[in-house]
Design a protein around this nucleic acid. Structure first.
Length: 452
DNA sequence: GGACATGATTTATT
DNA sequence: AATAAATCATGTCC
């Protein structure tokens, strides 16, 4: 501990040692501040370290490890220092006790000290901190789950339906902070009480050698309490900081990016390739897809945005995928249409079997594949119907082109070529030549996307 | 540990 | 407001 020696600047002997307890206390308190500032600085540095983490440079493994180790947010620091502090204080007080009765002048001095901090009224900053801690669910009543903050985080993170995993992760961390906060707070309170008791005892002891007014005692206690409450404020401050850091981390979506499930990607891809002529899902379609994939609508939009641009940029690369999905969808489409046709032929009223491929009346939600999937045996409840006949026909054409083996005419390589994109007045806005032969950068181009 | 894949964000355009 | 394009940052694979 860097506690300054309990010197007395004293003229060594005689009257020089005539120090008043108030004076000493003042000294003590100053030092308290120092040592606490130190602790505070250290703490903040730790926090900062944690917050300013990695950018890109850091190895991921390390990063991961560090994140896992995060729980070390708490440190058992107070006690030793407090001990040190207390014992040193005692020493000081003993010295003071050793001196002759306190002089009135010095008492005055004590008063002046007090004068500065006598106003107890609501410190605006403290109030702000309190409010925030309350709002963040740190200092609040009891766990409701950090409700307010957690909810805010979830909302801000871009989706109501967002993953509960992260949510709980966030909450766990918040709880941690909360616990630390309360532990520390308790510690401080306890220390404050202990210290007060000590001082009182010492004063009492001293009162045998000199008169000590109750008022003086009261003032001492006041000073101590004030000091400790300022310490508390620091604690609150750093807690707020920690919460902020936590939040910013969790709100930064990039940090928590996670690949979609395989199934989700499949669903999206199926939609994409079965609507290749116009891969712009309507709002409803997006919602539907979002539901099916357990992602948010905006994630669906992101996905399609990325997909379109990447597909367009390098069609060659996606050829295989396109073929795959086209075939997949086409087969089911064929089945569906066949069934429909059969139905139409056999029974004039449109009452298809199983009701799944039935009513086409859903306003082109463009989700043929959703029907298909169930037909496909792809294990997901295609409760909803609504086929876009146009796209069925679309896909069928592809099927016929490729699976039927007529593809020869197309010139080998491009089974599911973007030809029809153009033809359909498709989605690639003229600007990009992007015909089969040379999408932006020619075949085999190293996609410029991976800029880093 | 690097290369690539991929979801998210940012910026510009319509 | 929706989208394209560029870019960022993380995930994944080798």
């Amino acid at each position: 501990m860097a506690l300054p020696p309990p010197h007395g600047h004293e003229g060594a002997d005689g009257d020089g040692r005539k120090q008043d307890i108030g004076d000493i206390l003042h000294q003590i308190m100053t030092i308290t501040d120092q040592s606490l500032d130190e602790a505070q600085a250290k703490r903040q540095e730790r926090m900062r370290l944690r917050a300013s983490e990695p950018k890109a440079a850091e190895p991921r493994a390390e990063l991961r490890a560090r994140r896992r180790a995060e729980p070390e947010l708490s440190e058992p620091r107070l006690t030793p220092r407090e001990e040190c502090f207390l014992s040193w204080t005692l020493e000081l007080l003993h010295r003071a006790a050793g001196t002759e009765g306190g002089s009135r002048e010095l008492n005055r001095k004590g008063l002046s000290i007090r004068g500065a901090q006598e106003e107890d009224p609501p410190d605006p900053q403290l109030m702000r901190l309190d409010n925030m801690l309350l709002a963040e669910g740190v200092s609040g009543p009891e766990k409701g789950g950090g409700s307010a903050a957690a909810a805010a985080a979830a909302a801000a993170s871009g989706g109501s339906s967002d993953n509960s995993i992260e949510h709980s992760d966030y909450r766990a961390k918040l709880t941690q902070i909360r616990q630390i906060y309360h532990t520390e707070l308790e510690k401080y309170e306890q220390a404050c009480n202990e210290f007060t008791t000590h001082v009182m005892n010492l004063l009492r002891e001293q009162s045998r050698t000199r008169p000590i007014s109750p008022k003086e005692i009261e003032r001492m206690v006041g000073i101590i309490h004030r000091k400790f409450s300022s310490i508390q404020m620091q604690l609150k401050q750093s807690t707020c900081e920690a919460v902020m850091i936590l939040r910013s981390r969790f709100l930064d979506a990039r940090r928590k990016r996670r690949n979609f499930s395989k199934q989700a990607t499949e669903i999206l891809n199926e939609y994409f390739y079965s609507h290749l002529s116009n891969p712009y899902p309507s709002e409803e379609a997006k919602e539907e897809l979002a539901k099916k994939c357990s992602i948010t609508v905006s994630q669906v939009s992101n996905w399609f945005g990325n997909k379109r641009i990447r597909y367009k940029k390098n069609i060659g690369k996606f050829q295989e995928e396109a073929n795959l999905y086209a075939a997949k969808t086409a087969v089911t489409a064929a089945h569906a249409v066949a069934a429909a046709v059969q139905n139409n032929q056999t029974n004039s009223p449109t009452t298809p079997n199983s009701g799944s491929s039935g009513s086409f009346n859903l306003p082109n939600s463009g989700d043929m594949f959703m029907n298909m999937q169930s037909l496909n045996g792809d294990s997901y409840q295609g409760s909803q119907v609504g086929a876009n006949v146009q796209s069925q026909v679309d896909t069928l054409r592809h099927v016929i082109n490729q699976t039927g083996g007529y593809n020869d005419g197309l010139g080998g390589n491009s089974l599911y070529s973007p030809h029809n994109l153009n033809a359909n007045g498709g989605w690639q806005d003229a600007t990009t030549p992007s015909s089969v032969t040379s999408p932006t950068e020619g075949p085999g181009s190293v996609h410029s996307d991976t800029s880093n």
